[in-house]
Simulated assay, not measured.
Amino acid sequence: LSGAPDKAHARRYLVKAEDNVPKAARSPNLLATRFIKLIGKLFAAEARSETWTAERRRRLRRRYSARVLDAIEKLMLEQTPGVVPQSLLGKALTYLHGQWPKLIRYIENGNWPISNNPCENSIRPFVIGRRGWLFADTVDGANASANLYTLVESAKANGIDPYRYLTWLFQRLPLAKTVDDYDALLPWEMPADLR
């Protein structure tokens, strides 16, 4: 979720470090640029495999992306000791190093996204709207709002029109009695012909 480690965030910090170097002094061997190019290879592989099955994408990640990640890690471990920790590049490398085990997990599963940007973008309206939601002045009201927002965003994340999903859900919810009944009401359980 928001604030979770992310290769897009790591890249963003490195781009800031690169932008801090005067254009006349930049070269392809600039350390930040080398990291950015390697991270770019990871995103290029993801773009290429966007329409593939999860298993095929996982194999690509294990064969190709893992090697690129190894190169990034090696470069990070070699270069970090020589970088001023409080510089923009130092902060970028500190983030990269501190989040490394979490940043590389996506290669384990072809369904996991390389970036959490879509998740962050989906919750951004709620983060921005916080101030306007002061009417939720009780814990129960805040919980109800959070539950409703979760249902709406889960429907969207599953390619389902939220209005159709909520209509379908609220018609069936009073009939649910068991855990299995409630599980059958999750967005991805909605029949495709009703979406």
Rank of each mutant, 00 (worst) to 15 (best):
E78N: 06
A24Q: 11
A66V: 11
D70C: 02
W100A: 08
L42Q: 13
K102P: 00
L69F: 07
R63A: 15
A92Q: 03
R67F: 08
S49I: 10
A92I: 03
P101Y: 07
L77I: 14
T53Y: 05
R58T: 15
K74A: 05
L103V: 13
E78P: 02
A47Y: 09
Y95T: 08
I104M: 04
R57W: 08
F35E: 07
T53N: 04
L42I: 15
A45I: 13
A25D: 14
S65P: 01
E55Y: 04
A32Q: 10
P81K: 08
A24V: 14
E73K: 12
I36S: 06
W100P: 00
N20I: 01
R57I: 09
I72S: 03
P81Y: 04
M76P: 03
G98D: 02
N29S: 10
G82W: 03
S49P: 05
T51E: 10
N29E: 09
M76H: 03
I104D: 00
A92T: 03
K91V: 04
I39Q: 12
G90C: 01
L88Q: 08
P81N: 07
D70R: 14
Q99L: 07
R59P: 03
P22L: 07
A45M: 08
F35N: 02
K102Y: 09
L31G: 14
V68Q: 10
K37T: 13
K41T: 15
N29I: 00
L88F: 06
R48M: 12
A24M: 10
T94A: 15
R63M: 09
K37I: 11
R105Q: 05
W52G: 01
I72G: 01
D70W: 14
P28T: 09
Y106E: 01
L42F: 09
E55G: 02
T80R: 12
N29L: 07
T80E: 02
K91Q: 13
V83G: 04
I39M: 13
E46K: 00
R58M: 14
G40C: 09
E73N: 13
A47M: 11
E73P: 06
L88N: 07
K37Q: 12
I36N: 05
R63E: 15
R26M: 10
H97Y: 09
P22C: 13
Q86K: 15
E78G: 01
Y95E: 05
Q86D: 11
G40F: 12
Q86A: 09
P101K: 08
L88T: 00
V21T: 13
L60A: 10
L103H: 12
A25C: 01
F43N: 14
R62S: 14
P28K: 00
A25K: 00
L93T: 07
H97A: 12
A66R: 15
G40V: 13
